[in-house]
Design a protein around this nucleic acid. Structure first.
Lengths: 197, 197
DNA sequence: AGCGTGCGGCTAACACTGTTAGCAATACCT
DNA sequence: AGGTATTGCTAACAGTGTTAGCCGCACGCT
């Protein structure tokens, strides 16, 4: 059951279903699938068109029969990542609402963290660097961010919490915390900071 | 930059002076200076060794008489960025302590944000992707993170605040917030969340 | 059946990238 | 003056994303 209280907003309540994404050819699906494996294995930077093509048993220029370029491949991967992370975050806030007990912020952060570190390279790809909004399925960004609004009840705090979570996540993924840091505690501190507020 | 356990231990109280960094040749200084201009202008990704060399009036291979490779150049730029941001953060918490009035967290975040967006490309270069710790001047990271400890009084909260600030900063620099977002308010929300505790 | 059309592969090639090898000139120290 | 280190150079290599153009094969249409 979705919380329909629509706090002070008359906008249509966002659905927990992700927005429809453009159809993909079977071959494109296959390419993206292989690319994803390679990215999660060695990172986006290490993925070259020739390596990907080799992996698919074709030559690099043939990729351009299916994709406009590497940038489109990045967009496709990034779209999938958004949908997966978003789905998990939606579920986190929903089950927190149902079970009623644990704080929604805590549940959300736990899920966000696990999504990020669970597919670290894909998370980095999806969240690092400038973003070509016009290439994204419309509504995806907003949909993926809505759980943070659900958990905080306020758009400003939602953005702040999302950004803070991203900070923790990306620094963890990038191994930027000094060795020996208690990251569990840091995440907990973040949850606590946004719980009382 | 990372908040690490510090005061209240028997370790020497960290100085507000940055750690000494290895000497640089005059020519290296010149190269780094030009590289910095080009990076801040078009980003690290757009900087090629040939472009940099052209700008200096030499050929690309000559750069290797001064630098071991592009990675070292990145380390040098990154080191400068850490020192500058760290210096500004140290000053922020110091003057907040002197004037006593404003919250140290708020002052620190304000300065951190302005450091990041003031030299956005350099900030991105310094904070994005994996970090080769062994190439950094020892103590730099800890020194740059200490202001967050000073502002929060707790190592765990310091790390969480630093990471959260980075999240806000990098998303802002990357233009990742949806257009029309009230970023001033988001930063304020973060400060507020970490003020009370 | 024949024919056209387009899909999806191919090779060759271009303009880049970071980087190495090896040569030459200049400056400096003994 | 002689030797050495410094700092430039050209040529070259392997790798990148990408384009142009060719070729075979499956399909639908008349």
């Amino acid at each position: 059951m979705d919380p329909e209280e629509a706090t002070t907003s008359d906008a249509p309540a966002p659905s927990s279903d992700p927005p429809v994404i453009p159809e993909r050819t079977a071959r494109v699906d296959a390419i993206v699938a292989r690319a994803r494996v390679l990215v999660e294995d060695a990172g986006w930077e290490a993925l070259s068109t020739r390596i990907l093509a080799d992996d698919l048993g074709i030559r690099a220029p043939s990729l351009y029969k299916h994709l406009s370029g590497k940038e489109e491949l990045r967009t496709l991967l990034l779209t999938d990542a958004f949908i997966e992370i978003g789905t998990r975050c939606w579920e986190a806030v929903r089950s927190a609402a149902v079970e009623g007990e644990e704080s929604a912020v805590g549940a959300l952060l736990t899920e966000y963290r696990s999504s990020a570190s669970g597919s670290a390279e894909l998370y980095r790809l999806a969240t690092t660097g400038p973003l070509d909004r016009s290439a994204l399925p419309p509504g995806l960004e907003e949909w993926a961010g809505t759980p943070f609004f659900e958990a905080t009840g306020d758009p400003v705090r939602a953005q702040a919490l999302w950004a803070a979570a991203h900070g923790l996540a990306i620094l963890e993924v990038d191994g930027r915390f000094p060795p020996g840091s208690d990251l569990d505690a840091a995440w907990q501190a973040l949850a606590h900071a946004f719980d009382a507020g």
